[in-house]
Amino acid sequence: MYEIVILEKQWMKGLSVRTTNEMEQTKERKIAPLWQQFFAQQIHGGQAPVIGLYSDYEKDEHGSYLFTAGQFADPQLEHAKEIPASTYARFRTKKGPIEEVVFETWQQIWTWDERHFRTYTGDFEWYDERSIDPKEAQIDIYIAIDKKMLAETNSIS
């Protein structure tokens, strides 16, 4: 279902919007239009990977958060956004229509047994060459977790 990876801090730049998961289930959703704006403006320059970063969480998946569509960037750039160094649970979607497989994987994450290990410091979606065809896409979703809590739980079981 997922694998544990440790990543160093990285930086990205892109377009951001504040939203909630509740709002994303309505016609007032903000993430899909932000992606459209990002690609229409060719901000990514046609290069992969493209990152969808969830950060600045108000509390958890029930509060507001900042969503940024962008790409890796030099940390010296003005308004560069940090992807924090962390231990992550990396989920890989199945192949299929991009909106469907991303939403389906997020539903799995929201009901995932270890979801209480989430740190809400920064989670992200990784879109690379596997997601070029939006009808047959596959992406990775990285969820920041507390490595110590996970290790303690795994040593008990």
Rank of each mutant, 00 (worst) to 15 (best):
K148G: 10
A32S: 10
E104H: 11
Y142R: 09
V101H: 01
T153G: 04
G45A: 02
R92C: 12
W35T: 09
I98D: 03
E22H: 15
W106A: 01
K9R: 10
H62Q: 10
K30V: 04
E61N: 14
E28W: 07
K59I: 09
G14A: 06
I143R: 02
G63P: 09
F72G: 02
T105K: 07
I145F: 14
Y88H: 05
V5M: 07
E3W: 03
I132K: 04
G70P: 08
T121A: 04
W126A: 05
Y120S: 12
W126D: 08
W11E: 00
I4H: 05
F72H: 06
S16W: 07
D74A: 07
P84S: 08
K30T: 11
E136T: 11
S131L: 01
A137T: 01
E61V: 12
W106R: 03
A48H: 00
I31Q: 07
L150S: 10
Q25V: 03
I6K: 15
D140C: 08
S55N: 14
D113E: 15
D113A: 15
Q41F: 08
L150M: 11
K95S: 15
S131R: 00
W35C: 08
F117G: 04
E24M: 00
L53R: 07
D113I: 13
G52T: 05
G52M: 02
L53A: 07
Y57R: 02
K59L: 07
V5K: 13
I83C: 00
Y120L: 10
T119G: 04
G96N: 01
T119A: 05
I132P: 00
A69C: 08
Y2P: 10
L77T: 10
Q108V: 14
K81V: 12
K148P: 08
L77N: 13
T153Q: 14
R92H: 11
Q42N: 15
Q108L: 13
T153S: 15
E58Q: 12
Q108I: 12
E58Y: 06
F124Y: 12
K9Y: 03
I43M: 13
F39Y: 11
H116K: 09
I6D: 13
E100V: 14
K27A: 15
I132G: 03
E100A: 14
Y2D: 09
V5Y: 01
F117D: 09
E125D: 11
T153P: 02
P33Q: 00
R18A: 12
Y127F: 13
R29P: 05
N154E: 14
Q25P: 05
I6H: 15
S16M: 07
M23G: 01
Y142W: 13
P84W: 08
W110F: 11
V17N: 01
A137C: 06
A144S: 12
R118F: 15
T119H: 04
F103H: 12
P33G: 01
F103G: 15
K59W: 07
A85D: 08
Y2M: 13
I98M: 04
T68G: 06
I43H: 14
D123G: 10
E28G: 09
Y142H: 14
E8W: 09
E114F: 15
N21P: 10
W106K: 04
F91Y: 05
Y120M: 10
